[in-house]
């Protein structure tokens, strides 16, 4: 695994100690460690259930019928593999470092690489989607090392794009995901919170476990002290002359209001939401993800 920018050897060593398991059970395509409530014919007995018309006759336990003269079906729990879908915001605003050593995109890329490695390492499937106002690149779920290399290569090639539209990207990606799993969205979420959660609705409806990782630099959380400044928007190139000291407090209130709005909507929709400063280590993101 050596030689990849976003998956450094020291990170791999640390990740050896991580045991990746999602907080919730997911349905897997391959048999794995993760139990699924999908009832099937293989693996481990789960319970007996009384027959109802339409059930598969092959599942009837005739021994029980012989003893009790009643039709009971044997049900089993399947052990299946996990699918983890990583959505990495690659808009222009993610290229902002705001006083940190790395930009938000780099920070998110480190996290995406580590998560991919962890998922593949445990035999689960991982997909990656980079987007700005639309889907820029998509790697379908896979669990092989080759798949992991492709993802890592894509992350290295990835550069900040155009304007952010998390909601639009999510809506466009929904048909691509055929199986439910874990949806990990890494973004600065400079979009309308209501639109974002409206775009998440199909995923939630289909049973996806959604994790939103909100990345902001220290300079975005708190305006830097500087004189009269021409602010140029990285996404729209809009220029705005302002005195940060005059706006500092109001800006802080506005960004906190935005964060609060995201957090409130996430809580209401049972979505995991966490805010992360880019001056902290990206491993801390796993605290919110791994049991």
């Amino acid at each position: 695994m050596a030689g990849h920018r976003y998956l450094r050897p020291e990170d791999i060593r640390k990740l050896q100690t991580f045991e990746f398991a999602p907080k919730a059970l997911v349905e897997g395509y391959l048999q794995g460690r993760h139990r699924s409530r999908s009832r099937g014919s293989s693996i481990e007995f789960h319970e007996y259930r009384e027959y109802t018309p339409g059930d598969d006759l092959k599942l009837i336990d005739w021994r029980v019928f012989a003893r009790s003269d009643k039709h009971f079906l044997r049900t089993f729990e399947q052990e299946t593999n996990l699918e983890c879908h990583i959505f990495l915001d690659s808009s222009a605003s993610m290229g902002f470092d705001g006083g940190s050593e790395i930009s938000k995109l780099e920070y998110g890329s480190f996290f995406a690489a580590a998560l991919s490695y962890l998922v593949v390492r445990y035999g689960d499937r991982v997909s990656l989607q980079t987007f700005d106002e639309t889907i820029r690149e998509y790697f379908p779920p896979g669990s092989t090392n080759t798949h992991l290399h492709r993802i890592l290569g894509a992350l290295e090639r990835n550069t900040p794009g155009k304007e952010t539209s998390v909601a639009e990207a999510l809506m466009k990606a929904a048909p691509l995901l055929t199986r439910k799993g874990i949806l990990v969205v890494v973004s600065d979420f400079f979009d309308n919170p209501a639109d974002i959660f409206q775009a998440l609705s199909p995923y939630l409806h289909r049973g996806f476990r959604v994790h939103l990782f909100h990345l902001l630099t220290p300079g975005e959380l708190d305006l830097e002290q500087r004189g009269l400044t021409t602010y140029r928007d990285l996404e729209t190139s809009t220029r705005l002359i302002a005195h940060p000291s005059a706006l500092k407090e109001r800006y802080k209130e506005a960004i906190e209001e935005h964060i609060g709005s995201l957090r409130q909507l996430a809580q209401r929709r049972s979505v995991d939401y966490s805010l992360h400063r880019t001056d902290s280590h990206f491993f801390r993101l796993f605290d919110k993800l791994i049991v």
Partner: peptide
């Protein structure tokens, strides 16, 4: 004033519009 590239000036714009 010196140019400073910022991730999004949308919040700043709203504030300035108010003030």
């Amino acid at each position: 004033p010196p140019v400073y590239e910022f991730s999004s000036v949308e919040f700043l714009r709203k504030i300035i519009r108010k003030t």
